[in-house]
């Protein structure tokens, strides 16, 4: 079976700086894959490339959405990629601060709705139905993620951990087949991290969504991931199951000087 995401030979140059150097990576249906590496290794750049925020210099990004054929997505606009079924979160939280929690999630529904200007003005039966559905669907997502109690609060007033989870909820609302999480546990305490761990597994198991995540919390990475890719200086230096990665001397060397408690 085709991997749902296959990145081949991906490179990204910023002027003279090579941020990504011939990177290969793949994610299979139903997998939780982690991308790790020291700070500045190019992990977020990698995310930005595959989600259309940057256009990579070289290489191929191929996706195979369920019930669809292989498609090359280099250089597509971010919104098109989200529409195709890859949704992401951001390392530094990027919610819509002055919108309510529900509205934040409803923005995620945007690309699955169709009402236009005329529809919005005349509010025919179809548009009203669609809008009601959007509200109930979004609320359902919030319940799943455990944010229903905040539904009408402004996103900016949410506690930190809840903001991180709202980012996930918003991404889920776009109905992705692959969810990209950029350091979802950053700044969380151990209990919140544990809850996040359970949430991610639940998303994979019940929603049938595959997950690719960047994370620094090694405990979380080791317990969650089916496979791990390790990057350093824009290159892939290792890949494999958590146990292999843990004992891989190259990885340990790359992390030398950094915290690495597995």
């Amino acid at each position: 079976m085709e991997p749902i995401l296959a990145v081949k030979n991906l490179s990204m140059n910023f002027g003279g700086l090579r941020a990504l150097d011939r990177l290969d990576l793949d994610v299979n249906q139903g997998e939780i894959v982690a991308l790790i590496g020291p700070n500045g290794a190019g992990k977020t750049t990698f995310f930005n490339c595959i989600t259309g925020i940057y256009t990579p210099t070289e290489g191929d990004i191929l996706i195979t959405p369920p019930r669809n054929s292989v498609q090359r997505i280099n250089g597509l606009k971010p919104n098109t990629i989200t529409e195709l079924g890859m949704a992401r979160t951001f390392q530094n939280i990027r919610l819509f601060p002055k919108m309510t929690v529900l509205e934040n999630v409803m923005i995620g529904r945007h690309c699955r709705l169709s009402a236009g200007i005329l529809g919005a003005v005349f509010q025919g039966k179809k548009v009203r139905k669609e809008e009601e559905r959007a509200v109930t669907d979004s609320y359902a997502v919030l319940e799943k993620i455990g944010l229903a109690q905040f539904v009408n609060d402004l996103a900016m007033n949410l506690p930190y951990g809840a903001q991180r989870r709202l980012e996930i909820a918003r991404a889920l609302a776009t109905e992705p087949f692959l969810l990209l999480l950029d350091e979802p546990a950053a700044g969380m305490n151990p209990q919140e991290t544990q809850e996040l761990n359970e949430l991610i597994v639940r998303i994979r198991d019940t929603e049938k969504i595959s997950i690719l995540l960047i994370e620094h919390d090694m405990k979380l990475v080791m317990s969650l991931s089916d496979r791990i890719f390790v990057m350093d200086y824009g290159k892939k230096i290792a890949q494999g199951a958590p146990r292999e990665i843990k004992s891989n001397p190259v990885v340990i060397k790359a992390y030398l000087g950094e915290e690495f408690h597995a």
Binding site: N79, L95, F96, K98, I107, G108, I117, V121, E131
Partner: peptide
């Protein structure tokens, strides 16, 4: 009517954060 519609929400999202807005599937 526009303000509370799909289009209106997209406008506000655009105002709040352009990059996140695009990443959430808004053209």
């Amino acid at each position: 009517r526009l303000q509370h519609s799909r289009i209106g929400r997209a406008w506000i999202a655009l105002r709040e954060d352009e990059i996140a807005c695009q990443a959430m599937g808004i053209d």
